[in-house]
């Protein structure tokens, strides 16, 4: 079933009326947005996919076996498509293929069953997801991505924007080009990569981790599970790990020109070879179960006892 919120341009009279209305709206300083209020039945674990170009997308879990879409769509939006079955629903904001359209914003608040699997793909649009327990996959080009709650797993990416995940998920992946990555309460298997932003991670226990930045810092706080593998890489950013005092891990640290400050053991890094990294530090603490590798070019490395 398709939603009926659609522009129709086939009638010339309608076109003239709309053109007149647009002029009037411009005169008044704003175009008219159209209100949206749609509902569809949905399974408790339905897969909901959302696509939008401009505007905002908010997704919230609720106890009903139903999807509700409310909000507004701009005058130049071609169509809001809501179609699919109870187990698989597609919500897509479609824009005209041609012409310069000034009012293409779609600000949608979408309520989904708590157990739903949510996939959002947008362009110039922040995404906010709360109270969803299923798998969450979010992708924006320009906009912040925010998730709170207990999703089974989260994958989030944006070119330009902050990624903020306050979730108890055991599998989290976050990627951004410009923007901070904030991961709070996460555990299990976590990976984050950014070019120009910093990465802040807190939670645990962590089973596996991979963190990469170029110019930003990595600030990691949490417990490492035995036999886990953790890799931290930064170019000019610092890598700061705040770890429990009773940690059991083996560390392999190297930096070309940064400093190494270690609260867990040997603090005097060596230069083993003139062809190797500027400074290297290898040590074990508490039996050395988890494996931690840290590499920087000019960023400092600091290991802090919690």
């Amino acid at each position: 079933m398709r939603c009926t919120t659609r522009k129709r341009w086939s009638n010339p009279l309608a076109l003239e009326l709309v053109a007149g209305a647009c002029l009037a709206a411009l005169w008044a300083g704003s175009a008219d947005a159209r209100a949206v209020d749609e509902r569809r039945p949905a399974a408790a674990d339905a897969r909901i996919s959302v696509k939008n170009v401009n505007g905002t997308i908010t997704v919230e879990g609720w106890s009903k076996k139903e999807v509700q879409v409310t909000g507004t769509i701009g005058e130049d939006v071609e169509e809001l498509v809501i179609e699919g079955s109870e187990s698989r629903l597609r919500i897509e904001v479609e824009l005209p293929h041609r012409g310069h359209n000034s009012d293409t914003d779609a600000d949608l608040q979408i309520k989904v069953p708590t157990g739903a699997e949510v996939q959002v793909d947008v362009v110039n649009c922040p995404i906010d997801v709360t109270k969803v327990d299923g798998t969450v996959e979010l992708e924006s080009v320009n906009g912040n991505v925010t998730v709170t709650g207990e999703p089974a797993s989260v994958t989030a990416s944006t070119v330009n924007g902050r990624i903020s995940l306050t979730v108890s998920s055991k599998q989290v992946e976050a990627h951004t080009v410009n923007g901070r990555i904030l991961l709070d309460g996460v555990s299990g298997d976590v990976s984050a990569a950014t070019v120009g932003g910093s990465i802040e991670v807190s939670g645990g226990p962590f089973e596996r981790g991979e963190f990469q930045t170029v110019s930003g810092d990595v600030d990691f706080t949490g417990a490492l599970q035995g036999s886990g593998s953790f890799d931290f890489q930064a170019h000019s950013g610092d890598v700061i790990l705040t770890l429990p005092a009773n940690l059991s891990a083996e560390f392999d640290i190297s930096t070309f020109s940064g400093d190494i400050d270690n609260a867990f053991g040997p603090s005097r890094p060596e230069r083993k070879s003139k062809y190797g990294p500027g400074k290297e530090l290898y040590f074990q603490t508490g039996g050395g179960k988890a494996r931690v590798s840290i590499n920087t070019f000019s960023g400092d490395v600091r290991l802090i006892k919690k």
């Binding site: 320009n142 080009v177 120009g196 000019s236 020109s257 062809y275 190797g276 070019f297």
Partner: peptide, 28 residues
């Protein structure tokens, strides 16, 4: 956004290449 990201990586490349020029043959 893309330009800013690429500039950050370019800067890191420039720094590493400069270090490499001073330390030719450094495998790391």
């Amino acid at each position: 956004s893309l330009t800013a990201g690429i500039e950050v990586v370019d800067q890191s490349i420039a720094e590493t290449v400069a270090a490499l020029e001073k330390n030719p043959g450094n495998v790391s």
